[in-house]
């Protein structure tokens, strides 16, 4: 009986990892990315006055992960733009988001239940991108662990890592802030995910790739949907970091972090209770990568 259930889980994961991303999931990725672009202050004005700059910005939001990964691996930066169908789809979404009559498209999409569905689908794409990125890096560098992690991380967090450059396109130049200084939940989760997938790729994690994709997607979807639904900007890792970091980096850091936690309007940390199963898996990679993250923090 147990064997049967395990088999069906494996099969489910396998078929899940083979669902084609292109029309539907990619579409929701573009929609959510461009929604976030529209939330940025000044983005709407920019689209009225300089449509070309706004379009370029939108392309960065949609394809930033591919561009950065290509840049890191020494492949043509505009490689992904040879994929005309995706670019046209993203352009259509950009056009609808910013120029739809009555703002109808934007109003529909930002209606909370619909938005949650799109957010969930976006996380599916994110996890798949991490997995593909690590596979790709593995193809180039068989024992390059750090290269695999970096590529997976970049693929997962996408445009967030090139915020400065993206702001420059919009005419804002703020070199004093960047994503590495204030890592958001998706970037952190991508980093941890990249570590997990790298461990799996180098066979340190006794688990098939499909299963890992399935479990990590479940974790990401539930966390992100929960965070979006409660409008919280905290991250489920906050609590864990609160315990681990004082041990690793001393007391000075702890007080700093505490202050940070209480300073934010929304208290973070509903995640760990939310999905404990995936959490324990997180911890595996956590210890090894913690150092790097915190240094960055």
């Amino acid at each position: 009986m147990e064997l049967l259930s395990a088999l069906s889980l494996g099969e489910l994961a396998l078929s899940f990892s083979r669902v084609p991303l292109f029309p539907v999931f990619d579409l929701s990725y573009f929609i959510v990315s461009l929604l976030y672009l529209k939330y940025e202050p000044g983005a709407v004005e920019l689209s009225r006055r300089h449509p070309a700059a706004s379009w370029l910005c939108a392309m960065l939001h949609c394809f930033g992960s591919y561009i950065l990964a290509d840049l890191l691996l020494g492949e043509p930066v505009i490689d992904y733009f040879s994929n005309s169908a995706s670019v046209l789809l993203a352009s259509a979404v950009w056009y609808l988001t910013f120029f739809c009559p009555l703002d109808l498209f934007y109003k529909c999409v930002s209606f909370l239940p619909i938005k949650l569905v799109f957010v969930a689908m976006k996380e599916v794409v994110r996890v798949r991108k991490i997995a593909v990125g690590i596979h790709h890096a593995h193809h180039h560098y068989h024992h390059g662990w750090f290269i695999m992690i970096a590529t997976g991380w970049v693929k997962g967090s996408g445009v967030a890592l090139m915020t400065n450059f993206e702001q420059l396109l919009r005419g804002i130049w703020k070199p004093e802030t960047n994503e590495i200084l204030h890592m958001s939940f998706p970037s952190k989760a991508s980093l941890y995910g990249a570590v997990l997938f790298t461990l799996q790729q180098t066979r340190w994690l006794p688990m098939s790739r499909a299963t890992l994709i399935f479990l990590f997607t479940m974790f990401m979807v539930s966390c992100k949907v929960f965070l979006t639904a409660t409008h919280s900007h905290g991250s489920p890792f906050d609590v864990l970091e609160g315990y681990v970091c004082p041990v690793l980096f001393g007391t000075g850091w702890a007080s700093d972090h505490h202050h940070d936690n209480h300073g934010s309007p929304h208290s973070g940390g509903p995640g760990p209770q939310h999905c404990p199963a995936a959490k324990s898996k997180e911890e595996l990679g956590e210890g090894s990568r913690k150092k790097k993250t915190k240094k960055a923090d």
């Binding site: 939330y39 109003k107 930002s110 209606f111 909370l112 938005k115 409008h231």
Partner: peptide, 8 residues
């Protein structure tokens, strides 16, 4: 636009 997202 109904019960639109309040945080956004």
């Amino acid at each position: 636009n109904g019960t639109g997202s309040s945080a956004s």
